[in-house]
């Protein structure tokens, strides 16, 4: 029974005792042959902060996210994460250490829920699986936690034994979020989380994400090309073009008083409704 607790309480905001940034990135560079994926990217992410990364297709924002999350090996740079044992360079970790991190303190929400869910497993199983990966064994407790999390992402409890293939796109995305957040991560990577969804479903998801970020004190790095999404969700913004960060700052400042020509073009290209 005790195993499922594991010091993770999804209802409580994690105690922030550290004084430094949660994630400190320096000189991160990834090349694809002669082509630049991302070049010399550096930033600090603080506990509870939401960082948006924007740019058009091919700007290097997804490459950057993959390098940060350990899905892609960068050519240079460091990604220092404030682990429970103190700051560690993630890039210098062993593969098992990194895998453990991505099951506990980190989470990754994919644009396509199919990439983040097990489509052949029930909704409850999808959420429970991540708990089991960190050592939970008691079936009843796992099912209770899964039910609780389905409720938090507004999926009815009676759908717990349905497979995600029977869910709508918006429901699948909410299930992916539940699966990721059930273990109480401290840092969540999101790749276009509202990308394939229609506008009313997007709004619901944004509202949900904002609430979870606040209640759990999550730090989030969110990649999107949708400026409206970052306006509502991100504290800070990084604008990428051709693999380089051309501008960064407070979200509303970057959007309302963009300094770089590319950012000015991006902002002025948004259709007003």
């Amino acid at each position: 029974m005790g195993a499922v607790e594991l010091g993770i309480s999804a209802k409580m905001k994690p105690e922030v005792t550290s004084v430094g940034p949660l994630l400190a990135v320096r000189g991160l560079t990834k090349r694809y042959g002669a082509r630049i994926g991302c070049a010399d990217v550096g930033f600090d992410l603080w506990p509870g902060e939401v960082l948006g990364i924007v740019g058009e297709s091919g700007s290097g924002k997804s490459t950057l996210l993959s390098c940060l999350a350990g899905h892609l090996a960068p050519d240079a740079g460091s990604v220092v994460f404030d682990t429970s044992e103190g700051p560690r360079d993630v890039l210098a970790m062993t593969e098992p250490e990194r895998r453990r991190l991505s099951r506990t303190d980190w989470a990754f929400v994919h644009q396509n829920p199919r990439d983040g869910l097990r489509m052949g497993v029930t909704a409850g199983g999808n959420v429970g699986e991540r708990l089991m990966a960190v050592g939970a064994r008691n079936y009843g407790a796992i099912r209770d936690r899964a039910t609780d999390w389905l409720g938090r992402v507004e999926i009815a409890a009676e759908r717990i034994d349905d497979r995600p293939s029977a869910f709508s796109g918006g429901m699948q995305q909410r299930l992916q979020i539940a699966r990721n957040l059930v273990t109480g991560p401290r840092l969540v990577f999101m790749d276009e989380p509202t990308g394939g969804l229609d506008v009313s479903v997007q709004a619901r998801l944004l509202d949900l994400l904002r609430g979870l970020v606040r209640e759990m004190g999550l730090s989030v790095i969110i990649v999107t090309h949708d400026l409206a999404v970052v306006r509502l969700l991100a504290d800070r913004l990084m604008v990428m073009k051709s693999g380089h960060v051309v501008e960064q700052g407070l979200t509303d400042q970057v959007l309302d008083d963009p300094q770089h020509g590319y950012t000015q073009l991006l902002v002025s290209s948004v259709l007003q409704v």
Binding site: G249, L250, D252, Q253, D256, D257, Q259
Partner: peptide, 9 residues
């Protein structure tokens, strides 16, 4: 006003 709020640089 926007400069005071940090909205404009």
């Amino acid at each position: 006003m926007r400069m005071v709020y940090g909205n404009y640089l």
